[in-house]
Design a protein around this nucleic acid. Sequence first.
DNA 1: ACAATAACCGAAAAAAGATTCGGTATGTGT
DNA 2: ACACATACCGAATCTTTTTTCGGTTATTGT
Lengths: 120, 120
Amino acid sequence: MYEKKMEEELDCGIRVAFKIFGGKWKLCIIDAINRGIARPVDIYKSIPNATMRGIEIQLAELLFFGAVERCAEEVYPKKSEYKLTSLGESILPVLTKIDNWGAVHSEFVRQRQRELQDSE
Amino acid sequence: MYEKKMEEELDCGIRVAFKIFGGKWKLCIIDAINRGIARPVDIYKSIPNATMRGIEIQLAELLFFGAVERCAEEVYPKKSEYKLTSLGESILPVLTKIDNWGAVHSEFVRQRQRELQDSE
DNA sequence: ACAATAACCGAAAAAAGATTCGGTATGTGT
DNA sequence: ACACATACCGAATCTTTTTTCGGTTATTGT
């Protein structure tokens, strides 16, 4: 994992939360796993524009902080599968709130974004 | 504002939401304003480790996307003041959820973070 | 056995994001 | 008038994050 040069403050809940699920694809990954998509390739395919390496890295971080775990059971066919831990599940209500807010305001935000691009 | 080189997808609520309040200090700023801290310097002073320029930039973005507005009323002494718009206020319940999650899990996260540093 | 797919990983490069620094303009207190 | 604080802004310079690329190892389908 990347070694920071500037001191990292985890002094408020916001910073702690973003440390865990603030990454570019983290909430999308958690959402995908929650919807039953367990394997890295499938998670990757379920998220438009994501890169495989990107998913791998973020998955590794979620694993490190215990939001996700690798399934140990050797099923047939033998595959790498991930599922949410209780910590990961505790993120779901927050994820829902964030996603809903974004969905409700997406048109407004996209419109504002377009105005920005047109003025350049 | 920064011009992106890679195509930016605002295809899910999560991405839209992070576009608006995903910045390093944005939720802290919204929280501060909500607590009645209206002036840039005061917001700056209320957030440990923030830089004045950082606050200015993020405030400008929040302003651009209409989460915050500058008070037009000319009070004495004349000062620059910001307050939440209805869009900004709609973020508050989400902010609370995020902050609470982080507060609840901060010890665990900090512990894991320490283990990471010790192993280096 | 062989080709294809999956799950990784390291390192370089690119992109995005934040900070530092130095500036202007304006308002305020004495 | 003067010193000082505030609100900005642009540009250079970091820092951090993400992507790209090129691997290795192992598993699956034929």
